Amino acid sequence: MTALRVSSLPDEIRNEVARLKGAGFPLLPLGGAHGKAPLLKAWAGPGLTLARILAPMHRTGSQAYGVRLDGLAVIDCDSDDSALVAQMEARFGQSPVHIKTPRGRHLYYRAAGAVPNLRGEGLPVDIKTGARSYVVGPQSLRPDGGFYEPVKGLLGKDALPALRIAASPMCAQILTGHRHVELVKEAMRMVELVDSVKELQANLVGIRDDWCVDPATMPDSELHDIAGWAWKCRLENRIYRGRDSAFAVQRLALDSLRSLSNGADAIALLVLLEDQHGHTPGKRFPLDFDAMRAAGLLNLSKPRLRAARRALEGAGLLRLVGKHRAGSKPQTFVLSRPQPAVGGAMNVQPMPNVRRDVLPGKTGGKG
Rank of each mutant, 00 (worst) to 15 (best):
M1Q: 10
T2I: 10
R5Q: 13
R5S: 14
S7G: 13
L9V: 03
R19H: 00
K21Y: 07
G22N: 15
P26M: 10
L28I: 09
A33K: 12
G35W: 00
K36G: 02
L39A: 02
L40R: 12
A42H: 13
W43N: 15
A44E: 08
L50I: 06
R52A: 12
A55E: 15
A55D: 15
A55F: 14
A55R: 15
H58I: 12
S62T: 05
Q63I: 13
A64M: 03
R68D: 09
L69M: 09
G71H: 01
V74W: 02
C77L: 10
C77V: 06
L84T: 05
V85Y: 01
A90R: 15
S95E: 10
P96E: 00
V97W: 08
R103E: 10
Y108W: 04
R110Y: 10
A112R: 09
A112C: 04
V115C: 03
P116F: 07
E121C: 11
D126E: 15
S133E: 13
V136E: 11
S140E: 03
S140P: 03
P143T: 06
P143Y: 01
G146S: 09
P150M: 01
L155H: 00
G156S: 08
A166Y: 05
A166C: 12
A167Y: 04
S168A: 12
P169M: 07
L175N: 10
T176S: 06
R179C: 06
H180V: 14
H180M: 10
H180F: 12
V181S: 15
E182N: 11
V184L: 01
V184P: 00
K185W: 05
R189I: 13
M190K: 01
M190T: 11
V191C: 11
V191D: 13
A202Y: 00
N203S: 08
L204I: 06
V205S: 14
G206N: 14
D209F: 03
D210W: 04
V213L: 14
T217P: 02
D220F: 05
D220M: 09
S221I: 11
I226W: 02
W229H: 04
C233I: 01
R234G: 11
L235Q: 06
I239F: 09
Y240M: 06
R241A: 11
G242C: 01
F247A: 05
V249R: 00
R258E: 10
G263D: 00
I267A: 04
L269R: 02
V271E: 08
L272V: 13
Q276I: 09
H279V: 08
T280V: 06
P281F: 01
P281A: 11
G282C: 04
R284P: 00
F285Y: 04
D290G: 10
D290L: 02
A294I: 12
A294S: 12
L297V: 12
L300T: 04
R306N: 15
A308R: 02
E313G: 11
G314Y: 02
G314D: 06
A315G: 07
G316T: 09
L320G: 13
L320K: 13
G322N: 03
G327R: 12
S328D: 07
P330C: 06
Q331M: 08
F333G: 02
P340R: 05
A341I: 04
G343I: 05
G343N: 03
G344Y: 03
N347D: 15
N347G: 11
V348C: 14
Q349T: 10
M351H: 12
M351S: 13
P352W: 04
V354A: 08
R355D: 14
D357H: 12
L359F: 09
K362V: 12
G364K: 08
G365E: 01
